[in-house]
């Protein structure tokens, strides 16, 4: 169903942050979190972003999602520059994508039950009947290895990995076209992780979802992704097919990353 059609494109994308000033009279320090980044993502494929902690991966994800305005450059989704859209148009555009945030607990409202947390994107984007709503939440919950009875609970009643799965379920429920997943499986033990990764692949096979997967786990990226970029200090230092990068890394930093993987 895909013929190498570009779905997301970043053009000279940059995001700079100012640091708190040490003194009133000094010039503020600037962090170049994302610095002149270019790439294209092919529809229906998985795009991996790897790189050292602090290299700008989450910032990049927030810019692609339109959650943060870049300092310079463009993000195009289906050839439309999302930052040229009106607030309303952007909101419509956002329906097509969902994000799984890096910090699962921080992104779950502690006062809401799991049912309404997971149903939230449904409520915002689709008008569904109460019964359908409930059964769709339950189906999605089950697909990430949680249980029907969990819908009545609050976030604090779950373990770290269970919360992460709640966040994943919330992103999957509307069957979005693009999913940006920031470290989606890092808090999961391997057997649940395998379950979730297999689920992500199934969704891609059946609905042609495009993934942008941020992970520091190189084995996971290798398993899931077709194309990969490696970031270091806000810049892309290497890009190419996952196969190429993992079997024949060119950049020193990529090599160091591959060598540091713990094995037994």
């Amino acid at each position: 169903m895909t013929n190498n059609e570009t779905i997301v494109e970043a053009k000279s994308l940059s995001k700079f942050y100012r640091l708190p000033k040490e003194s009133l009279f000094k010039k503020p320090e600037v962090i170049k979190a994302v610095n002149d980044v270019n790439f294209k993502i092919i529809k229906g494929k998985s795009f991996g972003v790897v790189g050292e902690s602090g290299s700008g991966k989450s910032t990049l994800a927030r810019c692609i999602m339109g959650l943060e305005r870049p300092t310079a450059g463009e993000v195009k989704i289906n050839s439309v520059d999302i930052f040229s859209l009106s607030a309303n148009e952007l909101r419509n555009m956002r329906k097509q994508f969902q994000m799984v945030f890096q910090d699962p607990f921080g992104s779950l409202n502690p006062r809401k039950k799991i049912l309404s947390i997971i149903a939230e994107p449904l409520d915002v984007l689709e008008k569904v009947k109460k019964n359908d709503r409930r059964s769709r939440v339950i189906d999605t919950l089950k697909s990430v290895g949680l249980k029907e009875t969990d819908i009545e609970k609050f976030p604090h009643e779950f373990s770290g990995g269970q919360r992460q799965r709640i966040a994943i379920a919330r992103a999957l429920i509307t069957k979005p076209k693009i999913i940006v997943a920031d470290e989606p499986v890092s808090a999961l033990d391997v057997s649940v992780q395998a379950q979730v990764l297999n689920l992500l692949q199934d969704l891609q096979d059946s609905f042609g979802v495009t993934y942008i997967l941020i992970s520091h786990d190189l084995a996971v990226v290798k398993f899931v992704c077709d194309d990969v970029i490696v970031m270091n200090e806000g810049k892309i230092v290497e890009s190419g097919s996952a196969k190429e990068i993992f079997t024949n890394p060119k950049h020193e930093y990529t090599k160091t990353l591959l060598e540091a993987v713990p094995r037994f």
């Binding site: 391997v190 057997s191 395998a194 379950q195 990764l197 297999n198 084995a219 591959l258």
Partner: peptide, 25 residues
């Protein structure tokens, strides 16, 4: 089961490949 579900860098490149899981939850 736990130790056989780990994805490794040495795994075969094969898009049809699935990770082993422990059935049930």
């Amino acid at each position: 089961g736990l130790f056989s579900a780990i994805p490794t860098l040495e795994m075969q490149e094969d898009s049809e490949q699935r990770l082993k899981t422990i059935p049930g939850s």
